[in-house]
Simulated scan of single mutants.
Amino acid sequence: MVRVAESDLRKQKRELADAQVVLARRRRYGQKMYDTKREPRAVMKLRARTAQQSAGKYRIMHEEKLAEAKERLDDAAEAVRDDDEIRVDLPYTAVPPGRTVLTLRDLVPAYGARVTGGLDVHGPERIALVGRNGAGKTTLLRTVAGELEPVAGEATAHVPLRFLPQRLDVLDGELSVAENVARYAPGATNNLIRARLARFLFRGARADQRAATLSGGERFRAALAALMLAEPAPQLLMLDEPTNNLDMASVRQLTSALEAYEGALIVAAHDLPFLESLGITRWLLLEEGELRETTPEAVG
Rank of each mutant, 00 (worst) to 15 (best):
M1E: 09
M1W: 03
R3F: 09
R3Q: 08
V4C: 00
A5Y: 07
A5N: 09
S7T: 12
L9D: 00
L16S: 04
A17V: 11
A19I: 03
L23Q: 12
L23N: 12
L23G: 06
R25P: 11
R26V: 10
R28D: 14
R28E: 15
Y29M: 14
Q31V: 14
M33E: 15
T36H: 12
P40T: 05
R41G: 08
R41I: 13
V43E: 11
K45G: 05
L46S: 14
T50P: 09
T50H: 14
A55R: 01
K57T: 10
M61P: 13
M61S: 15
L66P: 08
A67Q: 15
E68L: 15
R72S: 05
D74Q: 07
D82K: 11
V88Y: 03
V88G: 05
D89A: 14
D89G: 11
Y92M: 15
V95D: 06
P96G: 01
G98K: 00
R99E: 03
L102K: 03
L104K: 03
D106V: 05
L107R: 00
L107C: 02
V108K: 00
V108I: 05
Y111K: 13
A113S: 13
R114M: 11
V121Q: 01
P124Y: 06
E125R: 09
V130A: 01
R132M: 11
R132P: 08
R132Q: 10
A135C: 14
T138P: 14
T143C: 02
A145E: 03
E149H: 04
V151S: 11
E154F: 08
E154H: 11
A155S: 10
T156Q: 09
A157R: 01
V159S: 07
P160H: 04
P165I: 12
Q166V: 15
D172A: 13
E174G: 04
L175M: 11
L175K: 12
S176N: 01
S176A: 02
E179I: 02
V181A: 01
R183T: 13
T189G: 05
T189E: 06
L192W: 10
I193A: 06
A195N: 11
R196A: 06
F202E: 00
R203M: 02
D208Y: 12
Q209H: 05
A212D: 05
L214V: 09
E218V: 03
R219C: 07
R219D: 06
R221S: 03
A226S: 15
L227C: 08
E231M: 01
P234I: 03
L236H: 04
L236F: 01
L237E: 02
L239C: 03
D240Y: 09
L246H: 03
A249W: 06
A249E: 04
A249F: 07
V251H: 01
R252K: 13
Q253A: 08
L254D: 01
T255A: 10
A257P: 02
L258W: 02
E262L: 12
L265P: 00
L265Y: 10
I266S: 00
V267G: 00
A268T: 10
L272T: 10
I280A: 07
L286A: 09
E288S: 12
R292W: 02
R292Q: 09
E293V: 05
T294C: 00
P296A: 06
V299M: 07
